[in-house]
Design a protein around this nucleic acid. Structure first.
Lengths: 261, 261
DNA sequence: CGTTCGATTGAGGAAGATCAATTAATGTGG
DNA sequence: CCACATTAATTGATCTTCCTCAATCGAACG
């Protein structure tokens, strides 16, 4: 029920992709986001730019707020959180990133990064000098297309986040977070029915604008309703048997009174 | 009190600008955002691309969600709201745009726009074909820099919005909205002490994740505290005598208990 | 095996939403 | 130009959601 755009329904991107996109199964709740060919993008980047590969471990800081901008990063493996800090000390998780995501766009505007980026797991990022990337784009127009699509995707997703934050109650926001997560995994060709939350309830809550207790309660509710199931040991691993059901749950949150006759 | 970044304090952008930025006065609460030379940007665009100039009136829809992407727009004059629509009918104002702002970035990723853009006033936008712009960038590297800075600025601002939404109470959020507004005007070389809200309380509330009643109450509180003042007739025109006081108000909202001895 | 950190769950309170009434501004037709 | 209709804004009273505070439990780790 909660899928596709309002007017047009063409889901095939018409802009050129690095390589032909493989035929993904059309998942329930699939949105307007296009399939990105991450492997192709990484290959092109690797061939053209010889990016510096950097291994990171949980807790490593890739770059910090205020640091001079120079590199963009592409996540090959691993998992990152982006944290924004206000002058008065407030902390805000503004994103979670993984395979195929770009890091550092925020730094271009003012020649310094405006966020901290922290690894939450062992992984590998590729770093490219921004100026080198731009030079390379002259010879490889596809690179520029990829870059712009990546930036555009961030901008479009930020709008979606704002919508979720402003229009969904807490339970639905957590559900929507999981839904987006699962969809992202699918788009990247990873398993989406079995996911491991690499972040704490506090981090999820911060990102979603609620307390950790509310996140916990929402997850408990979802588990009670059989929308999700926690794996045997630990509550960081969960399975989503049916994405449709997850979307339905979100919709149900929006109509508090089920219109009892 | 609420200014500059955490670590580094260099506010001068090191990336090349279209033309030398004029020396703006350092306003209280000035943030990490760089000065943009809007006049210079518009001149360059006009010279290089001969953009199509389009006159709009209040209510005109510049482009719609789902429409095929092709153009980027730059606001010359006037005022726009960006509205995102969810499949189930929720509506979310995701931004307000004016002179110097770019429109349509969200459309690049998937070759279709993901938002509606609606004029709220008479104005003029310049439209450029995205592919033509990219071609022109080959000869005019400055153009690409300007484009990337504009996209980056959107991304950085989205983070700031998320932070405000998640960490500030309603009153402070409204105050922060006004502060950002005034700052934007200053950066564009316009008067910031006397501003006209071109949108309704409902639109502000939607954008800030609260009801119109809460917006109204927040503005009343700000007026009672002499942080703002409504112009003689109508409650759409207001003046901000002291931006410092506005920032201080936001801070005060964050420390509910003034630590009485 | 105890310590620590993260997660869960419950009880009470507060910020903001909802509902409702009133007032102010804007527009319209006579 | 005025009466009337319409839309936006204000303000108050109540109600709901979610936050805060607190206790308990489970897992991981030294």
């Amino acid at each position: 029920m909660s899928n596709t755009a309002v007017t047009a329904v063409t889901t095939t991107a018409t802009l050129p992709l690095a390589t032909p996109a493989p035929a993904y199964p059309t998942v329930a709740g699939a949105d307007r986001r296009a399939r990105q060919d991450i492997a192709g993008t990484l290959k092109l980047l690797g061939d053209v730019l010889a990016p510096k590969r950097r291994l990171v471990h949980a807790g490593d800081v890739l770059y910090q707020c205020g640091e001079q901008f120079g590199n963009l990063y592409i996540v090959n493996t691993g998992f990152f959180k982006i944290v924004s800090l206000s002058p008065d000390g407030r902390e805000q998780v503004v994103g979670f990133k993984f395979r195929g995501d770009w890091l550092g766009f925020d730094g271009i505007a003012n020649a310094q990064y405006t966020c901290d980026t922290v690894a939450m797991d062992t992984g590998e990022v590729w770093s490219v000098r921004y100026d080198a990337l731009i030079r390379a784009c002259a010879d490889h127009p596809k690179l520029l297309t990829i870059l712009h699509q990546a930036m555009s995707r961030v901008i479009a997703h930020d709008s979606d986040s704002l919508m979720a934050l402003c229009t969904l109650p807490a339970n639905a926001r957590v559900a929507d977070f999981l839904r987006f997560w699962a969809e992202s995994l699918t788009h990247r060709g990873m398993r989406a029915d079995q996911i491991t939350l690499r972040m704490t309830r506090a981090e999820i809550g911060n990102y979603l604008g609620m307390t950790l207790e509310t996140v916990s309660r929402a997850l408990s509710t979802l588990a009670r309703d059989k929308i999700i199931a926690f794996a045997s040991k630990g509550r960081r691993d969960l399975s989503i048997p049916d994405l449709q059901a997850l979307s339905a749950f979100i919709q149900r949150c929006l109509v508090p009174v089920p219109r009892a006759s």
